[in-house]
Amino acid sequence: MNLQEIQKETGIDALLVTDPYNMRYLSGFRGGEGILYLSGKRSVLITDSRYTEAARQESSFDVLEENQEHRRPELLQACLEQDGARTVGYEDQSLRCCEFDRFRAELPLVKEWIPLQGQIDQLRRIKTPEEQELLAKAEAIGDAAFAEILKILRPGMTELEAAAELEYQMKKNGASGLSFDTIIASGKNSSMPHAIPSVKKLERGDFITMDFGCMYEGYCSDMTRTVVLGKADEKQKEIYNTVLKAQKEALSVICEGMTGKEVDRVARDIIERAGYGKCFGHGLGHSVGLFIHEEPRLSPADNTVLEAGMAETVEPGIYVPGFGGVRIEDLVIITEDGCRNLTRSPKELIEL
């Protein structure tokens, strides 16, 4: 589906785009502050003086500057008048209630407001070849950072210090920023899937789970690796190898035509048979693009049929409170007969 099809299906005369990732996808503008007005007659980007110069360089849209004399509703009203637009679609999942109320009050020309839910987001589901290569470059930066952090981790280093080193390595290798807050969880902390790095010191015998990602030209990477600082004991090996088997099996079957639920079930069955079903509480994966958590997802609740060109993480995990946890995550591009794995870092158990 494209914008024209959305307009035809919903019967709207124009639409407003407020989600910053959709703004970038549709207009090329990277600033994230402002609003897009789109109709069959014009494509307009409204932003303030902090971004107008950059917007004109990055986008082919007509750029209008909002200020005290030309407020956003007034600029939108002029567009509506010129187009005779009376039915307007809006992104109800990103537009703040207070701003929507203001639009309804100050844009009397609009007779009907149509919530578009996630229809604009869906335009980003299939990644173009160019987008796929940007994702691959971002993931390669993560691979390079992981190789370096393995040389740096040592007993006595705090989780916060390890996170800082990992983030430095990503920036050093070309990342423009982080795609999410870095997770470094060691020892018992690794039983928390989204643990926040702390002043806890790394100790011998610890699981160290590292979930991290960066941005390259706006596109995100995402990978997780778990290592052991020192020698792994038998329980650690059992848990690690179960997660590894679950991930490899899921990677071996994922392809166009499967649903997210079906892929999730492949990995979940392995973990459940090993007796750790209650220790795998999250879904197997999610889509990645301009935003780190996109749709569709690999989860028990997602019946979306996967299509070639979608980018998905595959990240099973086992988390045992009071003991520790393991997660292994790769980022893949769905193909007709399988997937292209963008993550190259080794995943066999590493003992440092």
Rank of each mutant, 00 (worst) to 15 (best):
residue 257 G to F: 07
residue 266 V to K: 04
residue 277 G to D: 02
residue 268 R to D: 12
residue 280 F to Y: 14
residue 253 V to D: 01
residue 278 K to F: 11
residue 249 E to W: 03
residue 231 K to H: 12
residue 278 K to A: 15
residue 265 R to T: 10
residue 273 R to H: 12
residue 246 A to I: 05
residue 255 C to K: 15
residue 255 C to Y: 05
residue 259 T to W: 06
residue 254 I to D: 03
residue 243 V to N: 07
residue 236 Q to Y: 03
residue 266 V to H: 00
residue 273 R to M: 11
residue 281 G to R: 14
residue 232 A to P: 08
residue 246 A to P: 05
residue 229 L to S: 08
residue 270 I to E: 02
residue 255 C to A: 15
residue 232 A to G: 09
residue 280 F to T: 10
residue 229 L to M: 13
residue 238 E to T: 13
residue 267 A to F: 00
residue 258 M to R: 15
residue 264 D to K: 09
residue 263 V to N: 04
residue 261 K to T: 10
residue 254 I to A: 02
residue 267 A to C: 04
residue 261 K to G: 02
residue 253 V to H: 07
residue 256 E to H: 04
residue 242 T to A: 01
residue 278 K to Q: 14
residue 231 K to P: 08
residue 235 K to V: 11
residue 232 A to F: 05
residue 262 E to T: 10
residue 244 L to N: 10
residue 254 I to N: 02
residue 255 C to N: 12
residue 255 C to Q: 15
residue 250 A to K: 07
residue 234 E to W: 06
residue 229 L to Q: 07
residue 271 I to D: 01
residue 255 C to V: 02
residue 276 Y to G: 05
residue 240 Y to S: 08
residue 272 E to V: 13
residue 276 Y to K: 04
residue 232 A to Y: 06
residue 250 A to N: 06
residue 236 Q to W: 02
residue 261 K to C: 12
residue 260 G to N: 11
residue 242 T to Y: 00
residue 271 I to Y: 01
residue 234 E to T: 12
residue 282 H to E: 14
residue 262 E to L: 07
residue 240 Y to K: 08
residue 245 K to I: 00
residue 272 E to C: 15
residue 230 G to L: 06
residue 236 Q to I: 07
residue 242 T to R: 03
residue 275 G to D: 08
residue 239 I to Y: 02
residue 257 G to M: 06
residue 264 D to Y: 14
residue 234 E to A: 13
residue 263 V to Y: 02
residue 242 T to G: 05
residue 265 R to S: 11
residue 262 E to Y: 06
residue 247 Q to M: 15
residue 231 K to T: 14
residue 277 G to F: 01
residue 232 A to V: 10
residue 255 C to H: 14
residue 282 H to N: 14
residue 274 A to W: 01
residue 234 E to V: 10
residue 263 V to F: 02
residue 259 T to D: 09
residue 253 V to P: 01
residue 247 Q to Y: 09
residue 250 A to C: 06
residue 235 K to Q: 14
residue 230 G to E: 05
residue 246 A to Q: 02
residue 278 K to T: 13
residue 239 I to H: 03
residue 266 V to Y: 01
residue 271 I to V: 12
residue 278 K to I: 11
residue 274 A to M: 00
residue 273 R to G: 08
residue 276 Y to R: 04
residue 277 G to P: 03
residue 282 H to M: 13
residue 246 A to H: 04
residue 260 G to L: 10
residue 256 E to C: 05
residue 260 G to Q: 09
residue 244 L to V: 07
residue 280 F to M: 15
